[in-house]
């Protein structure tokens, strides 16, 4: 009788984890392909939503230059709101969609590690979110006729990518919520998104917020993404270290905290029998 190989070399484990990461991204590509028209419809809704915000600038009595600046600030807020929304939605779907399809037990009993699984979801969310944010940006600029002669798009995308590390970390914390509450957990992810943006100056400067909220704004990654992106789009600024280092610090902390929170939630779900399709 042949012996069963139950040894696992470090090299094989690493290789398997990378293939697992690829598998998560690949699966999301398949699903995007299958739900493409639904995604286009959702994109149109987000563009309409962003337009309702940016049109506010057209109703304000300002000089044309000041109006253009206000429209750009609102546009950056709207685009980042949409970008963050997609990241939270996709990372939260790590659990919610699998439960809805009934595949959750198969995925969670597979040997891929949870960090790789969640980071795979995060990577796809960032790629998809960036493409979508670019589409919203271009559509609104073309529709309203905003002039952006100095915009530094490369720096804007790079800063958003850096900020995404923190967004994924926070997304991991909210991804655990559908494990604990299958019915309401996903909605709580949107609550986290809204709370993060309200303190980060999404459509207004942080300085207008009450003092205690300004303190919270300092630990929100969206604050630095919004500030940096506005400077890059309006004034053609590069990637400012003043925006990058807080994002790196928050990102370095939020990913491990996100994983710890998710692991605790998974343990709770295993203890209470919630890791199954019907919750």
């Amino acid at each position: 009788m042949a012996t069963v190989d139950t040894t696992f070399t470090r090299r094989k484990i690493l290789r398997d984890e990378l293939i697992g990461l690829y598998g998560v991204v690949e699966r999301n590509l398949y699903l995007t392909k299958r739900y493409f028209l639904w995604d286009v419809a959702f994109l149109l809704w987000t563009i309409a939503n962003t337009l309702t915000i940016v049109f506010i600038s057209r109703g304000v009595d300002l000089s044309p230059a000041a109006r253009n600046e206000l429209a750009t600030k609102l546009l950056v807020g709207g685009v980042i709101w949409a970008f963050l929304g997609i990241i939270f939605e996709i990372v939260t779907e790590t659990v919610a969609w699998e439960r809805w399809e009934g595949t959750i037990e198969y995925t969670f009993m597979a040997p891929v590690s949870r960090p790789v699984h969640l980071i795979g979801m995060g990577i796809y969310a960032v790629i998809y979110g960036l493409v979508r944010a670019a589409a919203i940006f271009v559509a609104v600029v073309a529709f309203i006729g905003i002039h952006l002669p100095h915009a530094n798009y490369g720096a804007a995308v790079a800063l958003l990518a850096i900020a995404s590390i923190s967004f994924i970390g926070v997304g991991m914390m909210t991804a655990v919520l559908p494990l604990i509450s299958p019915e309401k957990g996903t909605q709580l992810g949107f609550v986290a998104q809204g709370l993060m943006l309200v303190v980060s100056g999404v459509y207004y400067p942080v300085s207008v917020l009450p003092h205690w909220m300004q303190w919270i704004a300092k630990i929100s990654p969206a604050t630095y993404a919004l500030r940096g992106n506005r400077n890059q789009i309006l004034h053609g600024a590069g990637i400012a270290w003043a925006d990058v280092w807080p994002l790196l610090v928050i990102g370095t902390l939020s990913i491990p905290i996100g994983l710890v929170v998710f692991r605790a939630g998974e343990r709770y779900a295993k203890k209470h029998g919630k890791l199954k399709r019907s919750g």
């Binding site: 398997d16 293939i19 697992g20 598998g23 998560v24 690949e26 398949y30 597979a110 040997p111």
Partner: peptide, 9 residues
């Protein structure tokens, strides 16, 4: 294919 990736294929 999705299931197999999680097992290193």
């Amino acid at each position: 294919a999705y299931a197999a990736r999680f097992y290193g294929m």
